[in-house]
Design a protein around this nucleic acid. Structure first.
Length: 159
DNA sequence: GCCAACGTTGGC
DNA sequence: GCCAACGTTGGC
């Protein structure tokens, strides 16, 4: 069992969208980066857990916990010319992009990026590294446990 | 909106 | 296979 962090722009798909989804499950479509794809295709297993991270928004940070509910399969949007994720070089015989399905385990308080950055325990965390842009990154077990602790704590005072 | 950092593309 | 140009990500 492995741990991950998966980024989504809440204007595209937020933790609340996932709460409203049927079976609280969604296909993690739209990944168009080979490294991130390979994590889904080669490494993700059923039951793996992931932080649902809100990016490119007012308050970036971890918004909840999800679980891998279906192993990687071809991402349908790559074949849909009307989709922003359409890839003209991908074929059904040889699909280039895949997605897993994730199911909401629970929504947490928003643990802001700034708070994560302030924790020496998380100094090595991949998503916090300079210049990191990967939308899916592995999370070390110790980092996972630490953040789970943070998430159960009351939000910081905002002064 | 800016821009640093990184990935991808394509000419050679 | 190199690498410059270009595109994208994502925090600020």
């Amino acid at each position: 069992m492995r741990y991950w962090l998966m980024k989504s722009e809440p204007s595209e798909y937020s933790i609340d969208d996932l709460m409203r989804a049927a079976k609280k499950t969604t296909p993690w479509i739209g990944v168009r980066n080979y490294q991130a794809r390979n994590f889904m295709r080669d490494d993700m297993q059923l039951g793996d857990q992931a932080f649902f991270y809100h990016s490119s928004c007012e308050e970036p940070g971890i918004a909840g916990i999800v679980e891998v509910a279906r192993l990687a399969y071809p991402d349908a949007t790559q074949f849909d010319y009307k989709s922003k994720y359409f890839d003209s070089k991908s074929t059904r015989a040889k699909p280039r992009w895949v997605n897993v399905d994730v199911r909401l385990s629970k929504k947490t308080r928003l643990v802001p990026l700034t708070e994560l950055r302030s924790c020496p325990e998380l100094a090595e965390m991949l998503v916090l590294q300079r210049g990191n842009r990967l939308s899916i990154t592995p999370v070390a077990p110790a980092e996972w446990e630490f953040i789970m602790g943070l998430a159960q704590r009351a939000p910081r005072d905002a002064d």
